[in-house]
Design a protein around this nucleic acid. Structure first.
Lengths: 146, 146
DNA sequence: ACTGTTACTTGAGAACGTCAAGCATTCAGA
DNA sequence: TCTGAATGCTTGACGTTCTCAAGTAACAGT
């Protein structure tokens, strides 16, 4: 499908990315656990930051089965962090919206992700700009690939 | 613990990292599933690439309970991808080692991670070098933080 | 030998994830 | 308009991952 890449740099960068992904993932999980949330619950909560969202769309965004989302939203709803709203235009659809307390939980969780601060603190403003551009281009490429 | 950061770039970079982590994670999971492995199983298998490893150390590396590893290794062993070897110096310890077929599975899985190729393809050699250095410094910082 | 620590396993219980089946609603074509 | 297909969500069954508490075996120091 693609040609050989004799570039010795690529595997090295991939390993670095993998390591960084590991760090990021672990921090995320810990920040969620500190609020008695699981990673999956935190992920859903984070998705609703910009506004309510149908279950179907949540499942699509997280690439999982809709039936999976049912359970996660059940548990979030049981804790009053989220609520299911009817869609005015289509009664099949249930829009999931964060409640007041769900909103503050989300913001706190987001603020507590010190992944932001620590590793990035090692870079200057100029370098952060470089990094942002490189990551953007990689992400664009990844998305173009499907 | 640290000062405020009015830098608007940091949250942006964090979001990009989060997105990239998502892509990476999804690819990893799919590559594993293509070989009827779960993500956790693939992770353990990957750890054994450099040689046998005691259960305890696997648990430590993955930051989880040892009892969790028992089950994962059970399933890998049932499929003949891994085996438990006695430690000659300490009979409490069981060293987990990949079998022949486990080794090829690991290598295939690693080779199939096209995360390596696609997103990085968008960058020139020069830029890859930049990216490597930036990631290295971030990772150093993250590790220093524990 | 006694004590305590370490390495692993077992069992209970929760969450996550898939799949198949089912219900209600909407949509499209005859 | 009526009928049949498609859509959105839920339910139930099942397997995996995870944690915690308890238990067994082996080591290490006194």
């Amino acid at each position: 499908m693609q040609e050989e890449q004799p570039d010795p740099l690529t595997p090295e960068v991939v390993d670095l990315m993998a390591a960084l992904v590991g760090v990021f993932h672990k921090e995320y999980e810990e920040a969620a656990a500190a609020r008695s949330l699981t990673g999956a619950q935190a992920k859903v909560l984070g998705l609703l930051r910009r506004g309510p969202m149908p279950m179907r769309q949540i499942a699509q965004t997280l690439s999982c089965e809709p039936s999976n989302i049912t359970g996660i939203v059940d548990r979030l709803e049981a804790r009053g962090l989220v609520e299911r709203q009817p869609d005015p235009d289509d009664r099949r659809i249930k829009r999931v919206a964060v409640t007041e307390s769900g909103g503050t939980a989300t913001r706190e969780l987001r603020a507590s992700l010190n992944f932001a601060r620590e590793p990035l603190a090692a870079l200057s403003g100029e370098e952060r700009l470089q990094l942002r551009d490189l990551l953007r281009r990689m992400l664009d490429q990844a998305r173009r690939q499907e």
